[in-house]
């Protein structure tokens, strides 16, 4: 059983979206959950957040960084992915919070539309703030803004929208006292720094953790994270946790455990694709 790619597009520089036909995932997935894919028989299992659903199709968005994502980026409409398992993890805590701010950094922006929509459908007022290094890395802007009452784009270099970081905008909103709940999704360092801003205001702040996983079902413990001094499995206890309780340094150290191997795998893949012209 393999899963067919129905739509494929590069939606920002080196960032791709794939819509995959996987009814068992699409029909049951909720905001905040993830899926695990394995491209082929020799592939690794990687977790990716469910970025959208449309009938029997489920969307994943990824940046080309390692071998698996490079390989994924070469796949197009009509190609197959060997395995798609999910949805996994607990859904986001969707209820009537009041005024919600959803913040996305880099490829993490892809997690926001489904979340913003769910929050809005539950009667919340939603502010979307997204940040990237420059304009070419901004993704899903129109889609996300359609689910937001207020929407701000930030770039590090000022090439689009506000010149600065999402945390600057968040701080302003917190000072105004107009925030009841915050979601921050992006690279670990960005989630760590951005979430520090909400601590003095005691505003509920969720982050979606992305440690290394294998099965994604609680079987291996590869995704151990320390939350409030206690070990949790991000795959089954998360992936969303309250930001102030996360041991960020441990998470970032654990994300680097296979740096050497990842580099080797990537180099071999690049050498191989150069020799035979993209295949």
């Amino acid at each position: 059983m393999a899963y067919k790619i129905e739509k494929a597009e590069e939606i920002a520089e080196n960032i791709f979206e794939l819509w995959i036909k996987a009814p068992h995932v699409a029909r049951n997935a909720k905001a905040g959950q993830f899926l695990v894919i394995r491209i082929n028989d020799k592939g690794e299992r990687i977790p990716l957040t469910v970025s959208g659903v449309d009938g029997d199709l489920v969307r994943i968005v990824f940046m080309k960084v390692g071998k698996t994502t490079m390989f994924l980026s070469t796949l197009g409409v009509g190609d197959f992915i060997e395995d798609v398992a999910g949805p996994l993890g607990h859904p986001s805590e969707i209820k009537k919070w009041g005024r919600c701010v959803v913040i996305g950094g880099g490829v993490g922006i892809a997690c926001l539309p489904i979340l913003a929509k769910a929050l809005r459908d539950s009667g919340n007022e939603v502010t979307g703030i997204i940040g990237a290094r420059n304009e070419s890395l901004i993704l899903l802007k129109d889609e996300l803004s359609s689910f937001c009452d207020e929407f701000v784009v930030c770039t590090d270099d000022g090439s689009c929208g506000y010149h600065g970081f999402p945390v600057d905008i968040l701080k302003k909103k917190l000072e105004e006292g107009s925030v009841d709940c915050v979601w921050i999704i992006g690279p670990a360092i960005m989630m760590k720094i951005t979430s520090l801003a909400t601590i003095p205001y005691n505003v509920k702040t969720f982050v979606s953790l992305n440690p290394i996983m294998v099965d994604g079902t609680g079987m291996c413990g590869s995704c151990r994270v320390t939350i409030d001094g206690e070990t949790k499995f991000a795959c089954v206890d998360g992936p969303e946790f309250e930001a102030s309780l996360v041991d960020w340094d441990e998470l970032m150290t654990r994300q680097k455990v296979y740096t050497e191997e990842e580099l080797k795998s990537r180099e071999l893949f690049e050498d191989h694709t150069c020799e035979c012209g993209g295949h």
Partner: peptide
């Protein structure tokens, strides 16, 4: 530090012993 489950799964199910031929390290 691994659980035996993770270590064995990486090798038995994912063939990490044959990395980089197989992608799982």
């Amino acid at each position: 530090v691994y659980s035996a489950n993770e270590f064995l799964t990486r090798v038995n199910l994912m063939h990490a012993d044959s990395f980089p031929e197989y992608d799982t390290p």
